[in-house]
Design a protein around this nucleic acid. Structure first.
Lengths: 221, 221
DNA sequence: TTTACTTGTTAGACCTGCCTAACTTTACTA
DNA sequence: TAGTAAAGTTAGGCAGGTCTAACAAGTAAA
């Protein structure tokens, strides 16, 4: 059974490996920056994770999760997203508050707890940020969504999920009345700085490129 | 903020200090035995807890929590018992299963989580084992109960709480259909080994002294 | 009050997880 | 293709939390 720290490394590898273009491959410095530790600390841990049989890694090479490491990481993600759903739906936390607490709750070791929680919540498919919750067999549906700044002008799209855990970002979206499931029409793209003008709920709003990058939408059919 | 290990020491000091005759005073070896570590490890930690300002302790003396240490410990106990209640009442765990998982959940740091959980559960007064749950101000009602083997023959008493977290003990009680709130009549006391014959729910049952010691009852008026 | 036993303390060691500083390898660019 | 910048590794050290083995204090009984 992994320690809490080991779990956090596995989770980080899953996450960074899923970034576009990463293809499961992650670098030492990248991981260090993400986890806010020094590359030398990461290197120590990589040796441990390899000895424990959870990652593929060799000197000066890229890092990737193997089968069992991935299974562990997906299990943690499942716990994280179920807890987020519980905090939001049952206890009334706002969507910017759930991540921090779920970061702690995801490390609780009890299969029964998670199964019961899943049942209690009615087997939710997505968490408060729109991300898919892995099922108890470890299956995780890939999110078929693109950032809104990759959409053509004039298109109408639906917000499937938001990317990013920063509370101030999520609070800002709430402030703009942007929620999962809402429909946007892309009115205009500002070539200068990548800002977008979007229309939703009968109003027009300009959002920066940074804001737009976290809005994951699906093309409407 | 205490580490998880420090929290466990504080909790142990609260618990052992509340034992009859202890009067808040605990010994090093006693603490070591309870926490399943060596006395030398306890000694190291005691120095840390003293430096952190949570305990009264001097060389070769007894250990006790001070005001702030006690407040921390009661806070952890509150979390533990609220989580036990959640696991039992909301998720349907049996009373022998809740302790182990609550041992992990009690270390989650989020005041809001605990307050919301308390609200969600309807501000419960007691946990699944009959113990009082400290309120959000840190007040903990002392349990006015005595082990059933301190009761006179012929008396009728109510089970207020059970003492002990051993799952096999709690399962055994369930098997005997013994639950919080049930009424017992003490029929007979076996002087040889301290066994008791008790009557409840229209049946007679012999229980060993060990079993009896965990049954905390109040005299009926 | 001396002995014997229990209780508590100290020294030195180990593992986890992190650090800094110095080094090596790889990758890119001139 | 040589030189440099970026990425990755190594060595040595530190704090938390544990251990064993040896020692010191307190306590109780003869």
């Amino acid at each position: 059974m992994p320690s809490i720290t080991e779990e956090n490394y596995l989770k980080a590898l899953l996450r960074l490996g899923n970034e576009p273009l990463a293809e499961g491959q992650v670098g030492t410095n990248e991981l260090a920056a993400y986890l806010q530790v020094k590359p030398s600390s990461v290197h120590d841990m990589l040796k441990r994770l390899r000895n424990r049989g959870w990652i593929n890694y060799q000197k000066y090479g890229k890092i990737s999760l193997n089968e069992s490491g991935r299974a562990l990481a997906v299990g943690i993600l499942r716990k994280h997203r179920l807890w987020e759903t519980f905090l939001h739906d049952t206890l009334g936390f706002s969507w910017d508050e759930v991540h921090e607490v779920a970061e702690q709750l995801e490390h609780i070791q009890s299969a029964k707890l998670i199964d019961r929680l899943d049942f209690f919540l009615g087997y939710p498919k997505v968490d408060p940020h729109g991300d898919y919750i892995p099922d108890s067999d470890g299956h995780l549906e890939p999110l078929a969504a693109i950032p809104i700044n990759q959409v053509e002008t004039g298109e109408v799209v639906t917000l499937l999920a938001v990317k990013g855990n920063d509370p101030t970002y999520l609070q800002y979206l709430s402030h703009l009345e942007i929620r999962i499931g809402i429909e946007f029409k892309l009115i205009e793209r500002v070539t200068f700085d990548g800002s977008l003008v979007i229309e939703y709920m009968g109003k027009r709003q300009t959002i920066s490129r940074m804001t737009a990058e976290g809005l994951l939408v699906s093309r409407n059919t």
